[in-house]
Design a protein around this nucleic acid. Structure first.
Length: 271
DNA sequence: AATTTCCACAACCGCGAGCCA
DNA sequence: ATGGCTCGCGGTTGTGGAAAT
């Protein structure tokens, strides 16, 4: 046997020891302990020195998506959902970029949310999730409802008759709440558990939803998106098409479940 | 109660970019 | 210039549990 073949056998044996699939508690502890004392990075050597029979990639993924201390778990808040919709309209499937603006959320989590929740709705409507119709539906139904939900959840404005949120006039229920013009003075605040403040300003000065997200005083301009410039005449278009705006009354919505959308209302978008 | 189907999420894979010797 | 290594990203798959039959 040549030294070459011996090497190959060793590599094979080494690779055959590599574990795959779900992580055990013991593996998690090993990874946590190693990272806490040596820090992140150099994942291949980390895997070796930590005694983990995993690839560096696997260790990195496990740490970033699950074990990292500031990972936030659980359902996405309406505010987070709104951000995802808006940022996706701007950047498309740039999950990691989108995740940068949702503290504590991972790109994998956001990607899964998009595939399981948003694309599911598109499938039910038998439209492409990237189609203009579907984006219209998101802008006209979903986003105003999320904003309304955010409004309901905002303790500072819950008892106030004049809302801090303005939205597209596509939803009468929302537009009734709109202040006269310009940026709202009291942004919807989403103070996350990690301490990051994330505010969304919504302007009613244009016929479309106009969003500005502000994270810790750093403004993230949200412009050039399908939602706020792509369909400036969406509401008018609906009227031209004979779609009556009052049909847009907000139904009882399970924000995290099956009935987020009222499929009957959305059916018209398939036309 | 048993089986099947569906769904959400965790994990894997391939590829490309960046860095460095 | 280039080859190897590491890392990060996005797409895809596998799996466990819930829901339906």
């Amino acid at each position: 046997m040549s030294s070459n073949s011996k090497t190959k056998i060793n590599i094979y044996e080494c690779e055959s020891e590599l574990r795959r699939g779900p992580w055990t508690l013991e593996e998690d502890n090993l990874l946590i302990q190693y990272v806490s004392s040596h820090g992140e990075g150099r994942w291949n050597s980390l895997a070796k020195f930590a005694g983990l029979k995993r690839t560096g990639k696997s260790c990195r993924l496990r740490w970033l998506n699950y074990l990292k201390p500031d990972i936030k778990r659980g359902n996405f808040s309406p505010h987070e959902q709104l951000l995802i919709l808006e940022l996706h309209s701007k950047w498309g499937n740039r999950w990691s970029k989108i995740a940068q603006h949702l503290p504590g959320r991972t790109d994998n989590e956001i990607k899964n949310y998009w595939r399981t929740r948003v694309q599911k709705q598109a499938r039910q409507l038998k439209v492409d999730s990237n189609s203009k119709k579907f984006l219209e539906a998101i802008r006209t139904f979903w986003m105003p409802r999320l904003m309304e939900k955010m409004e309901q959840n905002s303790p500072s404005t819950a008892s106030s008759p004049s809302s801090s949120i303005a939205a597209a006039p596509s939803s009468p229920a929302i537009s009734q709440l709109a202040p006269p013009d310009s940026l709202c003075p009291n942004p919807v605040n989403n103070s996350n558990s990690d301490g990051n403040n994330y505010d969304i300003f919504v302007s009613s000065s244009s016929p479309s939803v106009n969003l500005t997200a502000v994270k810790n005083q750093t403004e993230i301009p949200i412009e050039e998106s399908y939602y706020n410039v792509g369909f400036p005449g969406c509401y008018d278009d609906m009227q031209v098409q004979g779609i009556s705006p009052p049909e847009c009354h907000v139904a009882e919505i399970d924000w995290f479940g099956e009935d987020f959308w009222n499929t009957d209302e959305l059916w018209q978008f398939r036309k």
